[in-house]
């Protein structure tokens, strides 16, 4: 019984947890609404910086098969809300991790280097 409980504990639902850091003049409420309306997401990290918008999301366990579709859907919705920004959406945990690091560091001067690094990581194929 205990073993079964231990094994299925990974399937438990995680509460929605969205973290937003805004270094631009854009309204961040819209991105929150978009993310909150998608029930396939477990958590997300959002970073606004000048003309850039980086969104790292974590899909729920059984939605992980549709990661590319989730990325595409969110990017499309965000593009409608923020047509002037360069939007990067990724469901890769490394991107979420790196974005979180940038937010925690709070070093605005190094933000553009960090964002460039995130974008180059996404381009990596092998």
């Amino acid at each position: 019984m205990l073993i079964i409980l231990f094994l299925v504990s990974g399937c438990s639902l995680i509460d929605n947890d969205f973290e937003v850091q805004n270094y631009s003049a854009m309204d961040e409420q819209e991105v929150k609404d978009v993310l909150a309306s998608d029930d396939r997401l477990a958590s997300a990290v959002v970073l606004f910086f000048e003309e850039e918008l980086i969104v790292g999301v974590r899909a729920k366990t059984f939605s992980r098969f549709h990661k590319t579709k989730i990325e595409k859907d969110i990017k499309k919705q965000l593009k409608e809300k923020y047509p002037d920004l360069t939007i990067t959406v990724s469901a890769d945990s490394k991107i979420k991790m790196e974005t979180k690091k940038l937010i925690v560091k709070e070093d605005q001067e190094k933000l553009d280097i960090g964002i460039k690094k995130i974008k180059s990581l996404l381009k990596e194929e092998t």
């Binding site: 890769d92 991107i95 990596e124």
Partner: peptide, 14 residues
């Protein structure tokens, strides 16, 4: 590999 090197979820498999 993801935490300490520049590998993403996809590229860390190799």
């Amino acid at each position: 590999y993801m935490t300490y090197f520049d590998f993403t979820e996809r590229t860390s498999s190799n």
